[in-house]
């Protein structure tokens, strides 16, 4: 709170006007429309619509396709989070030991942050291309027949790898910052008491890193659920047989390709509730850090 302020009454509204106008026209109004449409059913021509209550939601929750999408999203989000955070933590611990070369390694590790999810998808799609890709060639030598066009597991692995790859740099930077914030004296004291590197990691470093870890956990789940549309669309388009049809992709597909506005709107509402709860968790954390 500022003690000294200006007393104008009209000026602040003029200053806020552009932001509020865009917020209302492109955020609040469409969100309201999504909520309204989720209670309506449009006829085949999109001319008339009638109020159907919770029918759209009931239809969704009893549809095996939507249940599959929920499951796929959960598997995808958890895999991406574990993979990218695991690799990033390992790299951050290694860089934390470096004195002179830390900067060079950091530069060589952070650039994928700048790669668009869609481009990341295209790159990995090419590397894993069953006919001309590098990886299927290598995997063939060890006897694995890679084909993400027909195999559900391979398709899921592909989108997980592409999405996790892009997120490693972000996690890496935050882990490095978290590690540097741990006072060296703690680790030194433990070393004097005879604790080896492994023991020190589990007894001191990892517990003290928990605020960073928890924060990244939420950020990564949000990323995997909402920012990976490009990865999916550029590679598998939800296939094969719905194996990678995450919720965000399904909203787009049902709404734009399938033209099922009511169902798509109901899915939007469910997604909004999810983002709201994740945001609340994240902000709660910012206020009360998880600490020992």
């Amino acid at each position: 709170m500022k003690r000294t302020i200006f007393s104008n009454q009209l000026l602040p509204w003029l200053l806020l006007a552009p932001q509020l106008a865009i917020t209302f026209i492109f955020f609040l109004w469409p969100a309201g429309q999504a909520v309204r449409q989720s209670f309506l059913r449009e006829d085949a021509f999109g001319i008339n619509s009638s109020f159907v209550g919770l029918t759209n939601f009931r239809a969704l929750l009893s549809s095996p396709e939507y249940m599959n999408s929920l499951q796929v999203t959960a598997v995808f989000a958890v895999s991406v989070t574990i993979m990218s955070m695991g690799v990033a933590l390992l790299l951050a611990i290694a860089v934390d030991r470096m004195l002179k070369s830390a900067r060079v390694y950091t530069t060589l590790l952070v650039w994928p942050y700048a790669v668009a999810p869609a481009v990341a998808g295209i790159l990995w799609w090419f590397i894993f291309n069953p006919t001309i890709g590098v990886m299927p060639y290598v995997l063939d030598v060890v006897g694995y027949d890679w084909n993400h066009i027909s195999s559900k597991t391979d398709a899921m692995l592909l989108v997980v790898i592409a999405s996790a790859w892009k997120q490693i740099s972000y996690n890496f930077l935050f882990f490095v910052a978290g590690l540097q914030a741990i006072p060296a004296s703690m680790r030194e004291a433990a070393a004097i008491d005879g604790a080896g590197p492994v023991r020190r990691f589990f007894d001191i470093t990892f517990p003290l890193l928990s605020p960073t870890t928890f924060f990244l956990l939420v950020v990564n789940i949000v990323y995997a659920m909402f920012d990976t549309f490009g990865v999916i669309d550029a590679t598998t388009e939800g296939g094969p047989a719905q194996a990678t049809n995450i919720m965000v992709y399904k909203v787009y597909f049902d709404g734009f390709i399938g033209q099922n506005i009511g169902s798509s709107a109901a899915q939007s509402v469910i997604l909004m509730l999810l983002v709201i709860s994740l945001t609340v968790i994240q902000f709660r954390w910012v206020e009360k850090k998880v600490e020992y």
Partner: peptide, 26 residues
């Protein structure tokens, strides 16, 4: 003033991906 602040805050929870169809219509 508080209401204006909250309106802006809410945009955090509404990524394009969750309101594609109505935003496109607007």
């Amino acid at each position: 003033r508080g209401l204006a602040f909250w309106c802006i805050f809410v945009t955090l929870m509404l990524p394009v991906e969750v309101r594609i169809v109505p935003t496109f219509q607007v």
